[in-house]
Design a protein around this nucleic acid. Structure first.
Lengths: 210, 210
DNA sequence: GTCTATATATCGATAGAC
DNA sequence: GTCTATCGATATATAGAC
């Protein structure tokens, strides 16, 4: 029986990876099918044979491309975190208001344009060994600091008016993260529209004078 | 090796269930250990032997209390959704502004006071069969409608000013859901303080005149 | 209700032929 | 690089004694 849309971890169907990720050949196929299955069922809910079946190969063939199942997950999580980081680093603005707008847009776009990847990166990190998870944790810490800097600067310049930086950062971050879960089939907005709307909401949250 | 805090799915440590849930005896012990393990590692990442070991019993003994592992998860998800629903139903207010404040407070409190339960209810629903997931889906739909009604009424009365009800609802809902992931050890706020702060943020998000 | 013992299926991963 | 075949470990769940 098909799982109802509301029960799924993700509303999106389309399997998509950021530009530059090699999709050719069996290795690319494995990565895409792993993305779909890990997003839908989780890492531990997907067997090596589920993955091989989805790729149209035998399970032993997987090991010609990846040393273990965990390495496939680690690769997806690396791609997801690097894509998110690169988007944030490209987000620029002349002042805290426009910087916050740009960063929130980038954050939301990452989750709306690659929802499966974002769900895996967010929700399956715990399945990695601490050694394999470490690079993603560094990227996360940088992203967090980047957002803190914007909020602090907006406060210092008297542009923002917030009850608490920590809580506001978590609120803005969290509402973007959840986009990956609900954006997909049947949602009548483009990722750009959602990003724009959420950037406006973030500016309200920080109390930016408008 | 212990998993670093930042890699965990949850920051909270304390295993707690809502008032009224029976905790006595082996059955209560199983429920509490399952809550801890399913929140930390996920349903598919927890074996029946992991659970039995945590309870200090043999795996066969589990089946004297629950017919399958899935039934243990279903029970936790039922408790989580019913607690959340009951909190929302108790949230009252004379006008849309105070109703929204009360509902957001209740939503956030549910996630901050029972973060493990909320993480399991939110993130492991997909692991249930559609039949066992159905009751939770009904409760979710009701909660969503309840929030929609408040936003619509606030708009109709000219108290709120929003770009889009759907996006705003998802934003407010999402920032509360994520509280379950980050609230816990080392966070220097009480659930009440977070709930109050997030209620203020939600009022900013809906553009409530203040 | 809890145990020992085990049935049966599936797990991740490997060996070796082609 | 892909296959067939299989290893050894582990999965969920059950049978039957106490």
């Amino acid at each position: 029986m098909a799982i109802p849309l509301e029960q799924r971890r993700i509303a999106a169907d389309e399997v998509r990876l950021p530009a530059g990720v090699p999709l050719e050949g069996t290795k690319g196929r494995i990565l895409q099918e792993a993305l779909r299955l890990f997003a839908e069922r989780g890492f531990h809910g997907t067997s090596i044979r589920d993955l091989a079946d989805a790729c149209g190969i035998r399970s032993a063939t997987l090991y010609a491309h990846y040393p273990t199942k965990e390495h496939v997950l680690a690769e997806l999580i690396r791609i997801g975190h690097e894509d998110h980081r690169d988007r944030l680093l490209r987000a620029e603005g002349a002042d805290p208001v426009s910087r916050l707008r740009a960063v929130v847009r980038a954050h939301v776009l990452a989750h709306a344009e690659h929802p499966l990847l974002a769900v895996v990166a967010t929700n399956e990190l715990h399945a990695l060994s601490p050694e394999m998870a470490a690079p993603a944790l560094l990227i996360r810490a940088d992203a967090r600091q980047l957002m803190y800097d914007i909020l602090d600067e907006g406060l210092a310049q008297g542009l923002f008016e917030m009850p608490d930086t920590f809580l506001v950062l978590n609120a803005i971050s969290g509402m973007g993260i959840r986009v990956a879960n609900w954006y997909g089939t049947g949602v009548p907005y483009t990722p750009q529209e959602i990003a724009d709307a959420y950037a406006d909401l973030a500016l309200r949250v920080v109390g930016a004078a408008r």
